[in-house]
Simulated assay, not measured.
Amino acid sequence: MDIALSIYHYSPFQGHARHCANIARELVRRGHTVRAYAMKWEGDAPDGVRFVQVPVKSKVPEERNAFFYRWVQAHLQKFPVQCHVGFNKMPKLDVCLVTEGCYKAQVAESCTWVHKMTPAYKFWAGCEEAVFGPESSTQILLMSGAQRAIFANQFPDATARMHLLPPSVTSDRKATLESELHKLEFRRQQQVKPDELVLLCVMTRFKRQGLMRLIEAMAALPAPLKTRVRLWVVGNDKPDPYVAQAATLGVAEKIIFFGGREDVPRFMQSADLLVHPAHRDMTATVLLEAMASGLPVLATTTCGYAPLVKKANAGLVAPFPYQQTEFNTLLAKALATDERMDWGNNALEFTDNRDIYSLAQKAADIIEASVTRAG
């Protein structure tokens, strides 16, 4: 069948965009014709996928995204498909993969009634209502039990249309027999001394995912640990505020910003601890990616997959509400303990015995079933 995928902006460094590409590959593998709409697509489209660029001009997010939706709908009128799948919330989707949190719940928690009078609120709330509201028939793909509970609380009528997907870890994250050799070689290339400890951050949004928290915790480490620690930051966000913070705290020389990278497995297999102190991260798939690599984890409770770190005994989780002094202590503990090797082994055992690789296949099943259901 003919299937259309819509995503505002595709970047290989963003989680929901990688889901889009993986699902597209799976649909092509199953023999479907796949067309992908985006304002911008970084890198190559998956083999067999026809990319259609939407010619937006406005720099105002709400105006830009509204134009995107109208343009795509007009194009679909001329070139119809059997199923339209969205990777951002928008009207008239047959299926929508939702990786972010609930806008309605976030506004209720942190905004005043005045915000509800703004055009921005009306646009974003309208997009969410179009997917989750009682008038919608969109099949909804969700990423975690916590995410499902929040949406079900705000949109109880949509519960029957919600489908919980397994985590999405690509097979290249999985540790192999050669991983230790790769680690030694990569650390040698990065001039890491044998007694140094490497922290790794893999983030797309430095502010939301807590990079400032980590830099502050590094600066607060006891002197014997601080002299040995290094931080690798992988992600294509803007580093300037964090470089300035690190310089003020005296740890700038210990941090390297690598930008967005395709070879994330090399970093995971070569570091000593993944740190993800997010303010809010609905899934934080990076935690499971690290665990599949045998890399211990330090995260915050506000990460969707943090309970699996606890369940696997694969590292430490900072409790809620967040306290910087407590996180500082946990970082020092994680670096000083001899348990890190056990945490890594526990992570490998846990991920080897869980379904964490089949998101694209399960999503494709639901997409195919949605067409059958509609028919």
Score class of each variant (00 low, 15 high):
residue 300 T to P: 14
residue 121 Y to T: 01
residue 35 R to K: 15
residue 371 V to K: 13
residue 33 T to A: 10
residue 175 A to K: 06
residue 256 I to Q: 14
residue 135 E to P: 02
residue 95 V to N: 05
residue 241 P to W: 08
residue 359 L to N: 03
residue 56 V to T: 15
residue 93 L to A: 11
residue 51 F to T: 13
residue 27 L to W: 11
residue 153 N to K: 15
residue 120 A to I: 11
residue 56 V to Y: 08
residue 54 V to C: 04
residue 276 H to M: 06
residue 51 F to P: 11
residue 96 C to K: 05
residue 326 E to R: 09
residue 90 M to C: 07
residue 84 H to F: 12
residue 51 F to Q: 14
residue 97 L to H: 13
residue 55 P to I: 01
residue 362 K to N: 00
residue 79 F to L: 08
residue 211 L to W: 11
residue 163 H to D: 01
residue 361 Q to M: 03
residue 101 G to Y: 05
residue 59 K to L: 11
residue 303 C to R: 12
residue 127 C to Y: 12
residue 307 P to H: 14
residue 279 H to A: 00
residue 316 L to E: 06
residue 249 L to V: 04
residue 133 G to K: 10
residue 201 C to T: 13
residue 186 F to S: 05
residue 372 T to E: 13
residue 371 V to R: 15
residue 294 G to V: 00
residue 210 G to N: 09
residue 255 I to V: 00
residue 297 V to N: 06
residue 69 Y to V: 13
residue 96 C to D: 05
residue 58 S to N: 06
residue 141 L to D: 06
residue 49 V to W: 09
residue 184 L to N: 06
residue 272 D to G: 01
residue 132 F to Q: 02
residue 268 M to A: 04
residue 71 W to R: 07
residue 266 R to P: 00
residue 201 C to Y: 12
residue 207 K to C: 00
residue 118 T to E: 04
residue 115 H to K: 08
residue 262 E to M: 12
residue 201 C to A: 15
residue 315 G to F: 09
residue 62 E to V: 12
residue 143 M to G: 10
residue 89 K to A: 10
residue 121 Y to Q: 02
residue 148 R to N: 07
residue 41 W to R: 09
residue 360 A to S: 07
residue 363 A to W: 13
residue 271 A to P: 07
residue 344 G to I: 03
residue 52 V to Y: 05
residue 244 A to W: 12
residue 285 T to V: 13
residue 195 D to M: 05
residue 199 L to V: 09
residue 245 Q to A: 11
residue 361 Q to P: 00
